[in-house]
Nucleic acid binder design. Structure first.
Lengths: 189, 189
DNA sequence: ACCTGAACACCGTTCAAGT
DNA sequence: ACCTGAACACCGTTCAAGT
């Protein structure tokens, strides 16, 4: 796992092959298949390690702030390793890997007193957004790092929106969506 | 493109190799490289075809309904071909492919009279959700089709939430988030 | 303009056999 | 329990050469 994370971070997911991992460990490729049934399950274990980095669990009084904190911690964890979002995203899509990312978001959202189905579906929607956002963000990072990056033209700072503010915008949108629903429920009562 | 779409739908993305596509066309693999610089650009063209299926553009009076319609049309387009969401998602992440999906969502959202930056970021967030959702949905489809699907136990219909209702829930959340913002703006004035 | 033939430098995975 | 050696059945891509 340590060797795999090193290859991932240093050379990216396309270079993280079973053969390359084996040679980094000074071992034949076939040796890995005593420890893992296949490459997917090796990536699933890697995915769990990336996602499990504990967040600084400040128990905020406001559930909305806790959701924002949890989402930001997840983003940070994904950003820790190159192609982290892609590894986690494809692992979860395959139905592999732990559900800890979803569960942490769900537990924060549950602070808003919604029914179980709402909590679950909101957490899923938020997880999709986070993975999609960071995947996109990391792709741009290595595109920029090797391509011609279009410098912000002229004297004007062209763009006030950074990846971080864009991320917060999306999370706020989802949280506000939940607030809107509960407020409407109150209005009707 | 026709042959590629056929392989994609019949055998899935992992089987859509340049060599296999070539042999389906009765041609050597190297022949494809006269038409495309590499596999990525071939997939990008495929992605554009999948996404460009025109939606029944009913010009709904309510912008919220138009957003829902546009999002559902995008989901339908992605569901038309096996692994459609994965093809489009990876293409867009690479910075390839057209921006038509984003643009259609943005144009629907713009009906709510938000500033350009809000429209753009909301469309991006929504696109991430749609791609993440359908990717997940399609992965479950082929997992179910070849694995042991856990039948809804007992006499009770265990689950009221279908992929379609889950999808609508997420879109509604994002739309309500936008409504919440504009309503707060009114409250302050 | 469009394609072939042959090669290069790789993959993931299996499995008998070794220690 | 853990690994080697050798093989199987593939990949994407390049490039001189053909028509």
């Amino acid at each position: 796992m340590r060797a795999a994370l090193h290859i991932l971070d240093e050379h990216g997911l396309p270079d993280l092959t079973m053969r390359r991992l084996a040679s980094a460990l000074g071992v034949q490729p076939s040796a890995l298949y005593w420890h893992f049934p296949n490459k997917q399950s090796m990536l699933a274990e890697l995915s769990d390690r990336i996602v499990s980095r504990r967040s600084p669990d400040r128990t905020d009084e406001e559930w909305t702030a806790r959701v924002a904190t949890e989402a930001a911690a997840l983003r940070d964890a994904l950003l820790t390793y190159r192609d982290g979002a892609e590894v986690v995203s494809s692992t979860l899509a395959m139905g592999l890997g732990s559900t800890v990312a979803h569960d942490r978001l769900a537990s924060a959202i549950a602070g808003g007193d919604f029914d179980d189905s709402t909590v679950d579906q909101a957490a899923t929607a938020m997880l999709h957004f986070v993975l999609g956002h960071v995947f996109h963000e990391q792709q741009r990072m290595q595109y920029d790092s090797l391509g011609a990056r279009p410098e912000p033209a002229d004297g004007i700072e062209a763009d006030a929106s950074t990846p971080t503010t864009e991320f917060s915008f999306g999370i706020d949108l989802l949280v506000n969506g939940l607030l809107f629903s509960s407020q409407q429920a109150i209005d009707r009562s």
